[in-house]
Simulated assay, not measured.
Amino acid sequence: MTYRLALFDIAGTTVSDPGFVAQAFVGAMTAAGHPIDHEACRPLMGYPKPLAIARLLGDRASDAAVKAIHEDFVQRMLVCYREWPGIEPLPGAESIFALLRANGIKVALNTGFSRDIADAIIERLRWADRIDALIASDEVAQGRPAPDMAQALMQRFAIDDPAQLVKVGDTEVDIGEGRNARTGLVVSVTTGAFTRAELEPYRPDRIIDSLFELPALLGLADGARNAAA
């Protein structure tokens, strides 16, 4: 298969997340009078954040409550990604981006974050020139696991065959997105929210422990060795 687009998740897949996302969820929920613990957030990683908040609230959810908590969450994440230490590319991310692009494969990022948070990450890491596209969950009708973001990128790059996409992420909703978009390859990484054992029941095509393993899956084995050097 000839791949034309690699679609990567951000936090936990290409960017380190030392628990900051869960911390922002816990802080925003607690400030609103709905205390939760960090473990409650983990199954919801990767989902559009308003949906995740609604699920955390359960029968206490209302449009107003979700909106207020999400606005607090966004502000906490903006401070985190703009100011806090520990925000850095995961090993292999930048070199793999370069390798894929050198071989004619577009590199795109997508996320369950809103666009303002995604932009803060790209600005912090100075990735604007390292990727070909960025799309966030609030820019489409439905976020992951719906295929809307992947399909929007296919349209942007005039890709008619979804089998020419590879989806890479660290959560079950990344897998769901890849399946729903009918991408040619769905790859899970163990660098983020879920362990290998937790990812296996969702049946991605491959599970890898490092982005350095990705090029070999795409037939770029020699480049993978160079990227890791």
Rank of each mutant, 00 (worst) to 15 (best):
residue 34 H to A: 13
residue 113 F to Y: 09
residue 95 S to E: 08
residue 27 G to T: 12
residue 98 A to K: 05
residue 83 E to P: 04
residue 81 Y to H: 12
residue 77 M to Q: 12
residue 88 E to K: 14
residue 122 I to A: 02
residue 116 D to K: 12
residue 43 P to I: 14
residue 87 I to C: 08
residue 42 R to G: 10
residue 66 V to K: 00
residue 95 S to R: 15
residue 26 V to C: 07
residue 115 R to A: 13
residue 95 S to V: 14
residue 63 D to T: 15
residue 41 C to G: 03
residue 88 E to L: 11
residue 84 W to C: 04
residue 55 R to T: 15
residue 86 G to C: 07
residue 80 C to Q: 11
residue 120 A to C: 08
residue 78 L to P: 08
residue 92 G to M: 01
residue 65 A to L: 07
residue 88 E to C: 10
residue 110 N to C: 06
residue 77 M to V: 09
residue 105 I to T: 01
residue 115 R to P: 03
residue 127 W to K: 06
residue 88 E to S: 11
residue 101 R to S: 11
residue 80 C to T: 14
residue 93 A to C: 11
residue 68 A to R: 09
residue 72 D to Q: 12
residue 116 D to I: 10
residue 118 A to P: 07
residue 35 P to M: 07
residue 75 Q to I: 13
residue 77 M to E: 08
residue 103 N to V: 13
residue 109 L to C: 07
residue 120 A to Q: 01
residue 43 P to Y: 02
residue 34 H to F: 15
residue 87 I to L: 05
residue 75 Q to N: 14
residue 96 I to K: 00
residue 61 A to N: 04
residue 53 I to G: 00
residue 47 Y to A: 12
residue 76 R to P: 00
residue 82 R to D: 05
residue 123 E to I: 10
residue 112 G to M: 06
residue 85 P to A: 06
residue 26 V to D: 05
residue 69 I to V: 11
residue 99 L to S: 03
residue 58 G to C: 14
residue 111 T to I: 05
residue 32 A to S: 11
residue 85 P to K: 06
residue 111 T to Y: 05
residue 40 A to S: 11
residue 105 I to F: 04
residue 88 E to W: 04
residue 86 G to S: 04
residue 50 P to V: 05
residue 107 V to W: 03
residue 72 D to M: 08
residue 33 G to S: 02
residue 33 G to I: 02
residue 94 E to V: 15
residue 87 I to P: 10
residue 95 S to T: 14
residue 76 R to H: 06
